[in-house]
Amino acid sequence: MLMALLKRDLLLAFRARGDLLNPLMFFMIVTSLFPLAVSPDPKLLGVIAAGVIWVGALLATLLSLDLMFKNDYEDGSLEQMLLMPQPVMLMVLVKVLVHWLVAGLPLALIAPLLGLMLGLPNGGFQPLVISLLLATPILSLLGSIGAGLTVGLRKGGMLMPLLILPLYIPVLIFASSSVLAGVQGSSYTGHLAFLGAYLALTLVIAPVATAGALRISLAR
């Protein structure tokens, strides 16, 4: 059943691949606003590049989170999933995996290009990609809680950033400073270890919390 869900969601995502590009394009536009707003000076950009890319990644993730459960809620398949005998948590994990594959992973893959445009010094590219690979699953996991809580609400799109962004702060701090450490030529394994630990923590909490949130959202 879980494999069937994975297959179904990937197929749906593939059929609507135009929509998948939206967060990516948003990511590119937002990050290119910073040189325009701050300064095109390569020295300055090199310093802020890590932070800019990571803030852009957070915002792009938020944008795509809204869709994690929304369509399924509207056409009734979410209800069907909650009525299946399998634990809802596992279903949430599949949904999160799909979200990461179609929304998180592409961010990590396109980030080096943006780093190039923002003049990120050479040492920063490796930690940028690794931190994105490691931390975008955290964004999907924590985000699923917000998506689950707001799925039945008409104003959910505005509410979700309020609920989720504060929880993203540790990710932002450690991920962007790992890039900074890489730029300065110092070791960044400690930062990545923290991100790994946080990923483990959210992997435990988020599916349970999201399953609860979905049950609440559907108990009209």
Binding site: L11, A16, E74, D75, Q80
Partner: peptide
Amino acid sequence: LYLGHQVGVKGGLTPEENLAWFNP
């Protein structure tokens, strides 16, 4: 087996795929 107001049929899938998901 439950059929609700919204029947849980995905517009982006064919009828065959829809049924295959409900009955793998």
